[in-house]
Design a protein around this nucleic acid. Structure first.
Length: 211
DNA sequence: AGCTACGTGCTT
DNA sequence: AAGCACGTAGCT
């Protein structure tokens, strides 16, 4: 057989092997700790050529969660399944990450609240810098780590941000945190956070406390 | 020191 | 208003 590519893969193969495939794998590996997340998301490791087209396909394309849910709901015909699957990936991501590196505390949203301060609803106001002479230095907000885009671990490789990364210095559009998309002072509702965070927190606390 | 990505200004 | 490009904060 020669060139019997999958119809879907063929149409998308224009960029998958070029951007999502190589670029993502390379970048992710370089990150060091992200590979666990990626595996949890793709359930097979697209980089290793696991053959799970669905995983690499969705991840590579960077299709937003909503699309995935719709697709699954359409195929499986069960919203419960879609919801479960979606939550599983998200939960597994956080838990796996935390468990893989409990000492390094890689979790930006759940592992080290005091340092990251994301869960408190903003950047850590700890007197790190700029507290000497009262100069209000520009402090970057950090991604919430729990929204859909934040859960996404693979760059689509085709959006303007990915393509113009060299000059744009921007994260993949599909990975752009929903909170960061809003204005810094947008309604001051920074305290609003999804139930995913407190759930994980309780889980960890119970785990540590019980043991 | 180098990389990633947020914040902001400029251009369209 | 949306997108692009640049500076630079934050992290490794």
């Amino acid at each position: 057989g020669s060139g019997h590519h999958h119809p879907m893969a063929a149409s998308n193969g224009n960029f998958l092997p070029g951007y999502a495939g190589g670029a993502d794998c390379g970048v992710m590996n370089k990150q060091g700790h992200a590979h666990t997340d990626m595996m949890g998301l793709s359930e097979g490791g697209s980089c290793n050529g696991g053959g799970v087209m669905g995983g690499s396909f969705l991840g590579g394309l960077g299709i937003p969660p909503g699309v995935i849910v719709m697709a699954m709901g359409s195929a499986g015909g069960g919203i419960s399944d879609a919801s479960s699957a979606f939550q599983m990936t998200g939960g597994q991501r956080a838990l796996t990450d935390c468990q893989q590196h409990p000492n390094s505390s890689p979790c930006p949203s759940s592992s080290s609240p005091s340092s990251s301060g994301v869960t408190t609803g903003g950047v850590s106001l700890s007197s790190s810098s700029s507290s000497s002479s009262g100069t209000v230095a520009k402090r970057k907000r950090k991604r919430c780590g729990v929204c859909g885009p934040c859960r996404r671990l693979i760059n689509c490789g085709v959006c303007s941000s990915c393509r113009n990364r060299k000059t744009g210095h921007q994260i993949c559009k599909f990975r752009k945190c929903e909170e960061l998309k809003k204005k810094p002072g947008g309604g001051g509702g920074v305290l609003e956070r999804p139930p995913s965070v407190p759930t994980v927190w309780r889980w960890e606390e119970r785990s540590q406390g019980t043991v």
